[in-house]
Measured scan of single mutants.
Amino acid sequence: GPREVTMKKGDILTLLNSTNKDWWKVEVNDRQGFVPAAYVKKLDSGTGKELVLALYDYQ
């Protein structure tokens, strides 16, 4: 199956793709996968990378 990404509340993840309104593709610890968009919030990183903050645990 697809590689699952797990996250804990407060984690910072790299946002790869947010074109789908329900599932965003993120990368964390060299793993890529989809997380519910409602579970993360975009951060203003000030760099080229888009980052998101995990609002809830997800696994």
Rank of each mutant, 00 (worst) to 15 (best):
G1F: 14
G1P: 12
G1T: 13
G1S: 12
G1M: 12
G1N: 12
G1Q: 13
G1W: 14
G1D: 11
P2K: 11
P2L: 14
P2T: 13
P2Y: 14
P2V: 12
R3D: 11
R3Y: 15
R3S: 12
R3L: 13
R3I: 12
E4I: 15
E4D: 12
E4C: 15
E4R: 15
E4Y: 15
E4K: 14
E4P: 15
E4A: 15
V5A: 04
V5F: 15
V5R: 02
V5W: 15
V5E: 02
V5I: 15
V5G: 03
V5H: 04
V5L: 15
V5Q: 03
T6Y: 14
T6C: 14
T6F: 15
T6Q: 11
T6P: 05
T6H: 12
T6R: 12
T6S: 14
M7I: 11
M7T: 01
M7L: 06
M7N: 00
M7K: 00
M7Y: 04
M7A: 01
M7W: 07
M7S: 01
M7C: 04
M7E: 00
K8M: 08
K8Y: 08
K8F: 08
K8N: 06
K8I: 07
K9E: 05
K9W: 03
K9H: 04
K9C: 06
G10H: 03
G10N: 05
G10A: 03
G10S: 02
G10T: 01
D11F: 04
D11N: 05
D11Y: 04
D11H: 04
D11K: 03
D11V: 04
D11L: 04
I12Y: 05
I12H: 04
I12G: 00
I12D: 00
I12L: 06
I12N: 02
I12C: 05
I12R: 04
I12M: 05
I12Q: 04
I12T: 06
L13N: 00
L13I: 06
L13Y: 07
L13R: 01
L13H: 03
L13S: 02
T14I: 14
T14E: 06
T14L: 13
T14Y: 10
T14S: 07
T14D: 04
L15R: 00
L15K: 00
L15D: 00
L15A: 01
L15S: 02
L15I: 04
L16C: 05
L16R: 03
L16G: 01
L16M: 06
L16H: 03
L16D: 00
L16S: 02
L16W: 03
L16Y: 03
N17A: 09
N17G: 06
N17I: 07
N17Q: 09
N17Y: 06
N17R: 06
S18M: 09
S18L: 04
S18K: 08
T19H: 10
T19N: 12
T19L: 08
T19I: 08
T19M: 09
T19P: 03
T19G: 08
T19Y: 09
N20M: 07
N20R: 09
N20V: 04
N20F: 06
N20D: 12
K21I: 07
K21M: 08
K21F: 06
K21H: 09
D22A: 10
D22Q: 11
D22K: 13
D22L: 14
D22F: 15
D22E: 11
D22H: 15
D22M: 13
W23N: 01
W23L: 04
W23P: 01
W23T: 02
W23R: 02
W23S: 02
W24C: 03
W24I: 04
W24K: 00
W24E: 00
W24S: 01
W24D: 00
W24G: 00
W24M: 03
W24P: 00
K25F: 15
K25D: 03
K25Q: 12
K25H: 10
V26F: 02
V26K: 00
V26G: 00
E27K: 08
E27C: 14
E27M: 13
E27V: 09
V28C: 10
V28F: 15
V28M: 13
V28A: 11
V28I: 15
V28Y: 13
V28H: 13
V28Q: 11
N29K: 07
N29Y: 08
N29C: 08
N29P: 03
N29E: 10
N29L: 07
N29Q: 08
D30A: 09
D30V: 04
D30H: 10
D30S: 11
D30Y: 07
D30P: 02
D30K: 09
R31F: 10
R31E: 08
R31D: 06
R31Q: 12
R31C: 10
R31H: 11
Q32Y: 11
Q32W: 15
Q32T: 13
Q32H: 09
Q32R: 10
Q32M: 10
Q32G: 05
G33M: 15
G33Y: 15
G33W: 14
G33A: 11
G33C: 12
G33V: 15
G33I: 15
G33K: 04
G33Q: 06
F34T: 04
F34I: 05
F34P: 01
F34W: 15
V35N: 01
V35M: 01
V35L: 03
V35W: 02
V35I: 08
V35K: 00
P36E: 02
P36H: 04
P36I: 05
P36N: 04
P36G: 03
P36L: 06
A37S: 13
A37H: 03
A37F: 03
A37Q: 04
A38F: 08
A38C: 15
A38G: 10
A38Y: 08
A38I: 10
A38T: 10
Y39P: 00
Y39L: 11
Y39Q: 03
Y39M: 10
Y39W: 07
V40L: 15
V40T: 03
V40Q: 01
V40H: 00
K41W: 07
K41D: 06
K41S: 09
K41T: 10
K41I: 13
K41V: 14
K41N: 05
K41F: 09
K42I: 12
K42E: 05
K42N: 05
K42S: 06
K42H: 06
K42M: 10
L43H: 03
L43F: 10
L43Y: 07
L43E: 03
D44G: 14
D44R: 11
D44A: 12
D44M: 11
D44V: 12
S45A: 10
S45D: 12
S45Y: 11
S45L: 13
S45C: 14
S45F: 11
S45P: 08
G46D: 14
G46H: 12
G46W: 10
G46Q: 12
T47A: 12
T47E: 14
T47Y: 11
T47Q: 12
T47H: 12
T47V: 12
G48Q: 09
G48V: 08
G48A: 10
G48R: 06
G48E: 11
G48M: 09
G48F: 08
G48T: 09
G48P: 08
K49T: 10
K49W: 08
K49D: 09
K49F: 09
K49I: 13
K49S: 10
K49E: 10
E50H: 11
E50K: 11
E50R: 13
E50G: 09
E50P: 12
L51A: 05
L51P: 01
L51M: 11
L51E: 08
L51F: 10
L51R: 08
L51S: 07
L51G: 02
L51N: 05
V52G: 10
V52T: 01
V52C: 09
V52Y: 07
V52R: 00
L53G: 02
L53Y: 09
L53Q: 10
L53S: 04
L53H: 03
A54V: 12
A54N: 01
A54D: 00
A54G: 02
A54L: 06
A54M: 07
L55D: 01
L55H: 01
Y56N: 08
Y56H: 10
Y56G: 04
Y56E: 10
Y56C: 13
Y56D: 06
Y56P: 00
Y56A: 10
Y56T: 09
D57K: 04
D57P: 06
D57Y: 06
D57I: 04
D57M: 04
D57C: 05
D57A: 06
D57E: 05
Y58V: 02
Y58H: 03
Y58L: 04
Y58T: 02
Y58P: 01
Y58S: 01
Q59I: 12
Q59F: 11
Q59M: 11
Q59Y: 13
Q59E: 13
Q59S: 14
Q59G: 12
Q59P: 15
